[in-house]
Design a protein around this nucleic acid. Structure first.
Length: 105
DNA sequence: AGATTGACTGCAT
DNA sequence: CATGCAGCCAATC
């Protein structure tokens, strides 16, 4: 019962990202272990309110919100991040050195 | 069972 | 800085 599947491992990691901070898909994948950035993206796509996972705090390695193939998720994500005080630059990107999550730090 | 797709990443051009 | 390509692996058709 220790292994609940890669999605639960990913969720557990993402839940540790504090408000106002962000992590990249690759970073989450590495911390969760045994999964790739793409799997993290897929796991985020299947998150529901009931999971209580701050999916909006996960961005791509360039520090920008990844566009979806469908839906307005990206816009909602940017709005949620701004609500946490995250500042985007002119290109809708943010500075990972400034708001990037430093695990255990 | 094989092909395609995707909220990715790193390296090369 | 923009594009392209290979590697990645679960989910879907």
């Amino acid at each position: 019962m220790t292994d609940r599947g890669y999605r639960q491992r990913v969720y557990r990691v993402v839940r540790q990202i504090p408000p106002g901070r962000v992590a990249t898909y690759g970073q989450v994948a590495r911390l969760a272990g045994g999964c790739t950035p793409r799997m993290v993206g897929f796991a985020m796509a299947s998150v529901t309110e009931h999971d209580a996972v701050p999916w909006h705090r996960v961005l791509n390695s360039r520090g920008e919100v990844s566009e979806r193939s469908a839906g307005d998720g990206a816009a909602r994500q940017r709005r949620l991040l701004r609500a946490e005080g995250v500042r985007f630059d002119r290109r809708s990107r943010l500075d990972l050195d400034e708001v990037g999550w430093l695990p255990r730090g």
